[in-house]
Design a protein around this nucleic acid. Structure first.
Lengths: 168, 168
DNA sequence: ATAAACTTTCAATAATTTTTGAAAGTTTAA
DNA sequence: TTAAACTTTCAAAAATTATTGAAAGTTTAT
């Protein structure tokens, strides 16, 4: 396979995975493009490479910066802004984990905590089932959160090394 | 908070979380409803509870069955089909992990494997950057896959117990 | 100040995804 | 059979989400 073809495949695959996991496809594609590009790109170049409009490119880049996955670079004597992606995969994984935890998991955990406070009659099957499900999911969510928090503080090799040491 | 209000909140929260993670909101809501309902429900009752159409209810239930999260029940002397959800949260987590791995992660890993075979000139920065990103992501994906596979084979308490033993 | 170079905004449009509901299909009982 | 009870299908409509592009905004150089 040619490098050029491989790049397109990578961008496509990353975009698809993103969209299946609740991340805008274009955003994932711009990220993919910057990941496999050695130097920083201008908005113009990104528009060109992915055939997207200026507005779309601009907003997507802003989002990616918001996720901590892309940074601006400016070059002496140039007006244009250049964009480049954090290339360290473990950093990317942590960044994404942190943002999604904050934006999506934490709010649900907050609600689950409230819901597990709801009082009722333990003889009532409606109440019992509700209580049990909420409590169990809450427990699971807390374990996931705890693991994510660990991951955020940990080096990649140590993290996986430790995990696989147990699950040899 | 009233139980009835709490139930609605739970259904809403579960639906929102689902939609943020690439799962159809209605599907997550039907699942939530069945999770907190002690006994099996008919299509009619689900339509009523969530104000959705018959077609939607039918398709959603079919999907949930396909995900292994819901089962049909039939009762002697009745024509109607009843639906109920697997209530064990760990089972749900495993079921979802397994399906998403199969449907979404595995295809990407397959492509990443192909892409990491692409040959090129190690002096070419374009090639080097591509190669490095693909290889690193591939490694991460394999670690995730390995962890998921372990999770699929493991009991809940043992899984978390083992994880937190390291990350005390 | 002015204009060129560049970025941002956002209403309108397009694309995609979800939902509806009525018709067609199936099963069971009499 | 036939008809009632129930389920499935799917084209059309609605809802949601993403994209465009031109105008407005900003910055810099002269």
């Amino acid at each position: 396979m040619e490098l050029a073809e491989a790049k397109l495949k990578f961008i496509e695959a990353w975009g698809k995975l993103g969209s299946e996991w609740g991340i805008n496809r274009t955003m994932a594609q711009v990220h993919a493009l910057l990941l496999i590009t050695p130097d920083a790109l201008t908005t113009e170049e990104i528009m060109e490479a992915l055939s997207i409009s200026r507005g779309n490119a601009n907003m997507t880049l802003r989002d990616l910066i918001g996720w901590g996955l892309v940074e601006k670079q400016h070059r002496a004597g140039e007006r244009k802004e250049y964009f480049f992606a954090e290339k360290d995969t473990w950093m990317i994984a942590r960044q994404v984990a942190q943002e999604r935890k904050k934006r999506e998991l934490d709010p649900v955990v907050k609600i689950l905590n409230e819901l597990s406070e709801v009082k009722g009659d333990d003889k009532d099957p409606e109440y019992k089932t509700f209580k049990k499900s909420v409590t169990e999911i809450n427990k699971l969510a807390k374990n996931v959160n705890r693991t994510l928090e660990t991951m955020l503080k940990t080096e990649e090799n140590w993290f996986w090394g430790s995990i696989f040491k147990i699950f040899k």
